[in-house]
Write a protein that binds this DNA or RNA. Sequence first.
DNA 1: TAGATTGTTAATCGATTAACAATC
DNA 2: TAGATTGTTAATCGATTAACAATC
Lengths: 208, 208
Amino acid sequence: MEKIDLPRRTVYRLSLYQRCLQKFRETGVETVSSEDLAGAAGVKPTQLRKDLGHVGQFGTRGLGYGVTTLSEAISGILGLSILQPVVMVGVGNLGSALLRYGGFRREGFEIIAAFDSDTEHVKSTTEEMGVPVLPVDQLAAYVQTHGVRVAIIAVPEAAGQSVADDLVEQGVKAILNFSSAVLSVPEGVMVNQVDLAAELGSICFFAS
Amino acid sequence: MEKIDLPRRTVYRLSLYQRCLQKFRETGVETVSSEDLAGAAGVKPTQLRKDLGHVGQFGTRGLGYGVTTLSEAISGILGLSILQPVVMVGVGNLGSALLRYGGFRREGFEIIAAFDSDTEHVKSTTEEMGVPVLPVDQLAAYVQTHGVRVAIIAVPEAAGQSVADDLVEQGVKAILNFSSAVLSVPEGVMVNQVDLAAELGSICFFAS
DNA sequence: TAGATTGTTAATCGATTAACAATC
DNA sequence: TAGATTGTTAATCGATTAACAATC
């Protein structure tokens, strides 16, 4: 596996394209132009082509892109051609909502286990979530034995950093962080911060 | 109210600074340097100063920023000095998680009502959510009579655009969109797309 | 005055868009 | 061949960082 270096935003959009391609596939479309696909993803055609240009040549001039071919190519690039195992830490409001959401599997990853420090929480949620919910003190061991490399953090701010430390120590390489904690991680680990309150706060500005 | 034009990212970070300042305030700190505050927010001091430079002069050279003064100034800029009323459309997994989350109020906005198309949903959730959950066909009227300008969309993709159209028609100016629908809105309406699946998909790339 | 720290300008960086030659 | 559409280069744009003079 060649390690390509891609701009963050490009990676994000590849993920978008991938979902659109799946939809095209389901409706039986076999070929799309950069204009069609970009339209579906909400970006400019020229940007789509630029993004794809970073990783290879997939189209046929005058014709467009083969839906299946491109979709599989992108899956490969994102590392989603094999189902990616993900753990979830924190099963509060947001964590459990994400667990129930479910649509993830279609995207090429699967939340294989969730963890929480609240024992009551652990017991009451295990069945209704569809994934095992375990006490957080089993997190490290689990991550190690299952070779997990991707994690979602949805714990209160105060616990964020220590959870991240544990994860990184066991080999996790990418973290999607919903806690408002600012995580510091070593070089080579990617953190993607999603700060819902700040997101909402910032749109309020544009309403005035 | 002068209408300032700020870079999106700057607005987002102002929201971050604001939260950090509140924490400083709670712990009795009266003055912070750009280094302290930037550290707390996870950005570079120079960026913080640049961001603030967009909107005015709040500091004292050699000393730093007054916590309270700066905090109130930012609230004013973001339009959060008065509690901002927000409606939520869609009370599925994600929507209800956000409703329960609650931490929003401290940030200066309040979800005053939620809407859903599923009548069962409406009934069963109203009490447990702490806000009225109403049938979606009352959305337009409610938004208009309450002068709501900010909305959160957490409905399935297929319904996203039509909900957005209704909101915009009734005067909503800013939308935080959690549906994966690519919304098209008229000039002057701000949409902030948060695509959780794409977010997760894109970090997977960095794990390989 | 000396030390600290802001506000701001200039330099850098990265990402988006436009334009067009290559080619199916 | 003519029409369409890609792949890629160059131009633009916006955002981040470095540097430093202003000043408390």
